[in-house]
Computed example of a mutant assay.
Amino acid sequence: MFMRSLMACVCLCLWHAAQAEKISPHLDEPASKDLIESWNMDVFPDGEGLPEGSGDAEKGKQVYEAYCLSCHGVEGTGGSADELAGARHSLIDNPPDKTIGTYWPYATTIFDFTRRAMPLNAPGSLSHDQLYAVTAYLLYLNGIIKETDVLNAETLPEVKMPNREGFVQIDAE
């Protein structure tokens, strides 16, 4: 019985190795220009790298309810994932509340992180308009912008986050 199980395990390992060879990531080959450009989507605090598009909190609520609510809860108050709004504690309380309104220093980071990592089951699937809209909704829930404020590549970097000065700048020499 042991030998039969061992042989089955060896055969399975060899089969997986053969399949892996067929779908190899080709790590020995340079990335193509198109592949590099598709990954180059950095957004900086000053707004550099933000794409065209726009959205407001009203549209963002619809996006949130469709893609975010199941993990982040009603109005961002938390669920299986962290709370995004509705902080009841400050950062110096124990425990601290690290919501968007209390912790994040730049509004552009919300857009950038959401574009790269959300929704969890399909990162990168939201359109630019959906991303601006859901960013507006999250900022609205945190009392940072009005529900009617429209976010785009010009207005998003202008949003002053409450904790913008809460981080220590490290000078690299």
Rank of each mutant, 00 (worst) to 15 (best):
M1E: 09
F2A: 08
M3D: 12
S5G: 07
S5Y: 11
M7L: 10
M7C: 05
A8H: 00
A8I: 06
A8P: 01
V10I: 12
L12Q: 04
C13T: 08
L14T: 10
L14V: 10
W15P: 00
A17Y: 06
A17G: 08
A18N: 10
A20K: 06
K22W: 11
K22D: 14
S24A: 15
H26I: 05
L27F: 14
L27K: 12
E29I: 04
E29C: 05
S32C: 09
K33A: 14
D34L: 14
D34A: 14
D34G: 08
L35N: 06
I36T: 06
I36N: 03
I36H: 01
I36A: 10
E37M: 10
S38V: 07
S38N: 12
W39K: 07
M41D: 05
M41K: 12
D42F: 02
F44L: 12
D46P: 02
D46M: 01
E48R: 13
E52N: 13
G53K: 05
S54N: 00
G55M: 05
G55E: 02
G55R: 03
D56G: 05
A57L: 09
E58I: 15
Q62A: 15
V63E: 01
E65I: 00
E65Y: 03
C68F: 14
L69V: 10
L69W: 07
S70E: 04
C71H: 08
H72K: 03
G76K: 13
G76N: 10
T77K: 15
G78A: 12
G79N: 10
S80F: 12
S80G: 02
H89I: 00
I92D: 13
D93G: 04
N94S: 13
P95M: 11
P95T: 06
P95H: 07
P95E: 12
P96F: 01
D97H: 15
D97Y: 13
K98R: 14
I100Y: 09
Y106S: 08
Y106E: 11
T109V: 10
F113M: 01
P119E: 11
L120V: 05
L120Y: 05
N121D: 12
N121I: 03
A122E: 08
P123Q: 12
S125R: 01
L126F: 00
S127D: 06
H128D: 15
Q130A: 06
L131E: 04
Y132P: 00
A133I: 01
A133F: 01
A133K: 01
A136F: 09
L141T: 07
V150S: 00
A153M: 06
E154R: 11
L156A: 03
E158D: 14
V159Y: 05
K160H: 06
N163R: 15
R164T: 09
E165K: 13
E165G: 04
G166P: 08
F167W: 15
F167N: 08
Q169T: 10
D171W: 13
A172I: 15
